[in-house]
Simulated scan of single mutants.
Amino acid sequence: MTKFKRGVKFFILFFFSTSIFSVLVLGFVPITFTPLMLIRSVEQAFDGEFPVAKRNWNSYSNISPNMVLAVVSSEDNKFPEHYGFDFVAIERALKHNSKKSKKIRGGSTISQQTAKNVFLVPARTWVRKGLETYFTVLIELTWSKRRIMEAYLNIVELGNGVYGVQSASEFYFEKDADKLTKSQAALLAATLPSPLKRDPGDPNGKLRRKQALILRIMRKVKEVNL
């Protein structure tokens, strides 16, 4: 039993020390690979495709403000002011999902999505959700809002093998991320949270309608200061 207790203590100490160290380091260096990218590469290989991951890190200052405005308008309109969690959105999601609707509604903030994408695998379990909460608290305490947004926009999945706004801008619009128009930024944001089912390179009517909705919200929000 004594060895077991020592083992548990060592594991806890190891987990907290390595996780905190990782968060601190990744608060400054470019994040070029995530667990999701590995999973997608394996899936591509099993499908008989050569694993491809288009990703180009771009600093916050080299990403169009239109893209920041689009994802805040679409995904998390309280991002500049909350501390990692939007409890109103979470409550609404819980009420909606309790009705056993076919369409599951999420209440995750951009901070939570960043924590999940950088440090965890996309599994629907309470353990993963608990770890997501832990890492969200860590990045909110140690990273600036600008850094969280920078990381999110550089690792977010925006197509099959397409990660980050810079790669998506090049792939779909043949331009750099700092040149994205409001319409293009809204179209990329409209693919979330299902980028593998929605193609901004060949948008259908449903995707166009979501793009139009995001543009209307963007006109009301006007700008995001981080």
Rank of each mutant, 00 (worst) to 15 (best):
V72M: 05
L13W: 10
T133Y: 11
L187S: 01
K100L: 15
R55A: 13
V88N: 12
F171P: 00
T191C: 13
A115V: 02
K100E: 14
F50L: 01
A115C: 05
E75S: 05
T181R: 02
E223F: 12
R198D: 04
A185E: 10
L26H: 01
V52G: 01
V118H: 02
F16D: 02
K78M: 09
G205L: 10
H82F: 06
K95W: 00
K210M: 02
D47L: 11
P30D: 07
N58W: 00
H96M: 00
I148M: 04
P195M: 05
V42E: 07
L153C: 08
P193V: 07
S183L: 05
A189V: 09
K182Q: 11
I39F: 08
T181I: 04
T114W: 00
R209S: 13
L215K: 11
M37Q: 14
A189F: 03
V8S: 10
W143M: 01
E81F: 13
S111I: 02
E91P: 08
D86P: 06
R216S: 15
R219N: 15
S108G: 04
G130P: 05
G84L: 03
A53W: 00
E170L: 12
Y83K: 14
A151W: 02
F173L: 11
V137Q: 03
F33Y: 13
A190E: 07
I104C: 08
F50A: 11
T18Y: 06
R92Y: 10
G106Y: 03
R128D: 07
F171I: 03
T191A: 12
E140M: 01
L196D: 07
L131M: 11
W143A: 09
V25Q: 09
S61I: 01
F119I: 08
K175H: 04
K5Y: 12
Y163S: 04
S144F: 01
D202T: 07
V137I: 15
V68Q: 01
H82K: 05
F14S: 12
Y163I: 04
V137L: 09
F21K: 14
E91V: 08
P200F: 01
S61V: 05
D199M: 11
V221T: 10
T114I: 05
H96F: 04
Q113G: 04
G7Y: 13
H82L: 08
